[in-house]
């Protein structure tokens, strides 16, 4: 075998993956570079670059009086929404793994919140919560829980606390289908003979679930969890459509805040993006570690 042929064959894989790598470099890596560069530039609100800003954009960002509230709110948003989603999805997946008449229809129905545009779902909820004539308020009024329309009690999206709670409900609602399907796939991959063995050994339902189902479901659970964390962290349409982050920034997360900053302060908005990017990268690292471990397990 000649040396040149050897070199050609070691080059071959690069030629095959080259185009994909070029595409990744152009559409993934290059925007990241631009984002980081923008965070250090002084840019006019109309998009004209006026020079370098050093760390000033970051300083302005950390001087924003609302930033710390927004960061804390983002953490609460992610933890509560993901935790509620995963718990409900565990139960849903268990249910959908049982044989019952109409299971096929029920499984199809579960896709609906996922298939519908999140923006559409958010607008429907915003209308349903209208303080004057929203259907949820009309219902509460009819059963006697709501005394009067156009009051603080009926204005769910007007005050930050109740608005944020309702937005979490919507976020959980649209996140459940994916998590449930991921867990359902995990459940179906557990061999039935293990359950049969457990039955023969006389294990009860709860013990079987805790010692067989949950451990074997772990890989699917971790993947669904981390993907959900990333999705919920980046969630924009729910908050934007329901409150636009208002009043003030009292229902903003870092994602909507970044968008609002962009209107007037592009550099500062890019600094916020860098911070968001760093946070997402941490989660991605966790995800990669989790999936790598899973591969080793197999």
């Amino acid at each position: 075998m000649s040396a040149s042929r050897l070199r050609a064959s070691s080059f071959a894989p690069l030629l095959w993956v080259g185009p994909a790598m070029a595409l990744i470099a152009l559409v993934v890596l290059w925007p990241v570079v631009i984002m980081i560069r923008t965070a250090f530039q002084h840019i006019s609100p109309d998009g004209f670059i006026l020079g370098w800003a050093g760390w000033r954009n970051f300083r302005y960002l950390f001087e924003e009086p609302d930033l710390y509230g927004i960061l804390i709110r983002t953490v609460i948003w992610v933890i509560v929404v993901v935790a509620a989603t995963m718990l409900i999805s565990l139960a849903m997946a268990q249910l959908f793994n049982q044989n019952f008449p109409g299971r096929r229809v029920a499984r199809w129905a579960l896709i609906a919140p996922w298939a519908a545009s999140v923006m559409m779902t958010s607008i429907v909820f915003r209308w349903a919560l209208d303080p004057n004539n929203g259907v949820i308020n009309v219902f509460l009024h009819d059963i006697g829980w709501l005394a009067r329309f156009n009051t603080d009690a009926s204005d769910w999206l007007g005050s930050p606390g109740t608005a944020f709670a309702w937005m979490m409900v919507v976020a959980v609602f649209v996140s459940i289908p994916f998590a449930t399907y991921a867990l359902l796939a995990g459940l179906q991959s557990i061999p039935t003979d293990i359950y049969e063995a457990a039955k023969v050994d006389g294990a009860g339902a709860w013990r079987t679930y805790r010692t067989i189902t949950l451990p074997l479901l772990r890989p699917a659970f971790v993947v669904a969890l981390l993907i959900n964390v990333i999705n919920v962290f980046n969630s924009f349409p729910i908050i934007w459509e329901m409150t636009r982050g208002g009043p003030g920034h009292q229902t903003s997360t870092t994602t909507t805040f970044m968008y609002q900053l962009k209107q007037s302060y592009i550099g500062e908005s890019a600094a916020m993006s860098v911070l968001n990017f760093a946070l997402v990268m941490i989660v991605v690292m966790l995800y990669l570690r989790a999936t790598a471990k899973r591969r080793e397990d197999i």
Partner: peptide, 21 residues
Amino acid sequence: MRLTCRTFLAGGLSAALALTF
């Protein structure tokens, strides 16, 4: 063989560029 590879690479790259631009 080499020629094919290079053609493929060129084709892939220009497809990527077309996608981008």
